[in-house]
Nucleic acid binder design. Structure first.
Lengths: 146, 146
DNA sequence: GTCTATGCAAAACGTTTGCAGATAT
DNA sequence: ATATCTGCAAACGTTTTGCATAGAC
């Protein structure tokens, strides 16, 4: 099922892979490009994209696209879901064990053979909840509203 | 919560809305543009995009982006999930009633307040299952494999 | 010597935007 | 009159691609 053509782990590719592994969060290709460029100032955008897709094809990283934003790359290679804050955009991993039940329902309804799924929860993160609460206080303190 | 600035239902906007309503499946902005252009040959891409976003803001249609493909517009305005065929790309609506349980789990794990979610199931549609089966037959009939 | 990878630059793609003229209230 | 809407064209951000050079096996 996987592309088994031999591929070389060149220094550039290793650096790109390392950035994904060491990232504190999911990064866009552009962010990875910027970070890798610190060590390889001549690296090209095209190389970064080609490498990220190569790594994803070989199952070493995962690529996600949420909404109309730039694609994000994830060091995790196992299936998991995400929550995203509608205000600040923060994106977190989350484990929601509903796979079997949900897939069965989907298969029965459609006749498809389902082998994967992805859920994105949208909400408000704790930090933005606090900011909202503070905002409400401020509104109450001044006037009703205009 | 909704933009209540008055907006005019111009002939162009009505035509765009009608195409989304009458579509046999989810359409991209480009497809909607092509279809509306049959009646309004001078309509501009920009008008189509602006109108689709306007309609979505007012809750008259919904916009989805899956993977890195172009955004799709849906006449349905209620929450529902989707299955997509990994081979032919067909995209279908599906109803998977796991909302409350899944959201609770996500909220507990992250501290977020969740108010929406979207699941995309990936699999193989009945038609592509048949084609695959036929392909397997052909392979067996000729040789083991090269 | 042959195949693969890189850098560069241009192009492709979907989408958004500034603006002047047209249209509606 | 005043505000909104349209068409046009240019710009935008992301991603892909062609090609010549460089490097690995």
């Amino acid at each position: 099922m996987q592309n088994k053509r031999p591929f070389r782990m060149t220094p550039q590719r290793a650096a790109i892979y390392a950035e994904v592994q060491n990232a504190e969060r999911h990064l866009t290709a552009g962010e990875i490009f910027e970070r890798v460029r610190r060590k390889y100032p001549t690296i090209a955008y095209g190389t970064v994209y080609r490498t990220l897709h190569l790594l994803a094809e070989h199952g070493l990283i995962q690529e996600y696209t949420f909404g109309d934003q730039a694609a994000l790359f994830d060091r995790r290679t196992d299936r998991h879901d995400h929550v995203q804050c509608a205000i600040c955009g923060e994106l977190l991993d989350v484990e929601v064990p509903i796979a079997l039940l949900a897939r069965q329902v989907a298969e029965e309804q459609t006749g498809y053979i389902i082998y994967d799924h992805q859920t994105v929860f949208t909400g408000i993160c704790p930090s933005c909840q606090d900011k909202q609460a503070a905002g409400q206080e401020r509104v109450k303190a001044t006037t009703g509203n205009s």
